[in-house]
Amino acid sequence: MIYFEHVSKRYGQQKDTLTDVNFHLPMGEMAFLTGHSGAGKSTLLKLITGIEFTSRGQVTVNGANLSRIKTSQVPALRRQMGIVFQNHQLLYDRSVFDNVALPLKIAGYHFSEIERRVRAALDKVGLLRKEKVNPVTLSGGEQQRVGIARAVVNRPLLLLADEPTGNLDPELSNEIMTLFRQFNAVGVTVLIATHDLSLIQQLNYPRLTLEQGRLIRNELGSERPQ
């Protein structure tokens, strides 16, 4: 699903933020991307979502080589994935329902279908009763769950999360993790970046560990997918 081959990334004239990163995350797997703050986790995710592009090496996502696609193809790439952000990135000028409906509107679904899927996604994250409220009125944990509902509402093949439990207490963090595990159980490929080791200690998923831009531990392997 995600294949990194000798990937390096350098911002401007600085030293490399990522250096020779190799790994393969197979379809249907779930993995954690860990490392200290500043290790390059967010940068690695940005290379998958087409926000940034590699300085050297190749990134392949669901068969598409990202250094070869045109910028006009990036939106279609992003529509195949759900992205969860640390700071939710919700729109506060519209309701929870309309926030979650956004990916479906972008994909051009009919309203009846949108309604059905948004309800299902909100039900999944336990916020069905809050569909009409403005996300501003929700707690941090609830806002993060709205963000997750929005990420999964279009039934993506791939779910990416950057510090999804960043500001949450351990109990809420565990709830969020449970949600990700449930999506993975129904076949979604999941990659979660987090520096919170205590959170993932008891979870038995493969890890990628970055240190100063180098992949110092790779429990996924890096052989080329067929």
């Binding site: 979502t49 790439l77 992003r78 529509r79 992205i83 952000f85 956004l102």
Partner: peptide, 10 residues
């Protein structure tokens, strides 16, 4: 920025 992030076309 948000709607571009979630895959909106130009």
């Amino acid at each position: 920025i948000v709607i571009k992030l979630i895959g909106a076309s130009d």
